[in-house]
């Protein structure tokens, strides 16, 4: 039994009600379900981006006991679509580690690249890198590999597995059954507005 990291009790977030879920230290929990079933809504609610009710704890600390921005820094949410505001990639993040850059297929030069010229796959991987530069303790991932080619998908999965091995907890929304089989310690799916074991 893993030590609990992220504990969610009776969370109400619009479509879904009474969601209880725990992600342990170093655990990868996958979340499946048809589109529109509320997977993204659930991740947004955990990150406290939309109004929601329920108790959420990180390492036993209540969410409402810490400032919202500290919570979001520790519980990193990766939306399906990334947004960029400055002209160059490097202006959006603290300097990332060399090893992380390489693992995700970049060199340090990427920091000088123009955001407008990035491909969707590059954006997706850079958004992950940008989020990781905050050193979150939990990652809430909304289809992090949806826009990547198969080779890159494997690279990102390996990199995320290494983060989990270091103790980071992953709550990973995926549509891909094979991916879930590859990466998940445990899988759940949303059916009829409730969270059930993945079949």
């Amino acid at each position: 039994m893993r030590e609990p990291l992220l504990e969610i009790e009776q969370l109400d977030c619009g479509i879904l009600e009474n969601v209880s879920l725990t992600v342990g230290v170093g655990e990868t929990v996958c979340l499946a379900g048809p589109s529109g079933s509320g997977k993204s809504r659930l991740l947004r609610a955990i990150a406290d981006l939309d109004p929601n009710r329920g108790q959420v704890r990180l390492r036993g600390e209540l969410r409402q006991a810490m400032p919202a921005n500290v919570w979001r820094r520790r519980v990193g949410y990766l939306p399906a679509e990334s947004h960029w505001w400055a002209e160059r990639v490097g202006e959006h993040m603290e300097s990332p580690d060399e090893a992380d850059l390489h693992a995700l297929g970049f060199t340090r030069e990427v920091l000088g690249w123009q955001v407008a010229r990035l491909s969707s796959g590059e954006r997706a991987r850079l958004a992950l890198l940008r989020l990781w530069s905050m050193r979150p303790e939990v990652l809430l991932l909304d289809e992090p590999t949806a826009s990547l080619d198969p080779e890159r998908v494997r690279a990102v999965e390996r990199w995320l597995a290494a983060r989990a091995a270091e103790g980071c907890g992953l709550l990973w929304v995926s549509h891909d059954r094979e991916q879930i089989t590859r990466v998940a310690d445990r899988a759940l799916e949303i059916r009829d507005r409730s969270l059930l074991p993945w079949a």
Partner: peptide, 22 residues
């Protein structure tokens, strides 16, 4: 119009004030 950007800044741990500063 720029809600995506504001929320991206929030998810990266910025305060509301910093996120809407521009």
């Amino acid at each position: 119009r720029r809600r995506g950007e504001i929320e991206a800044r929030l998810t990266l741990g910025e305060t509301w004030s910093a996120a809407i500063a521009p």
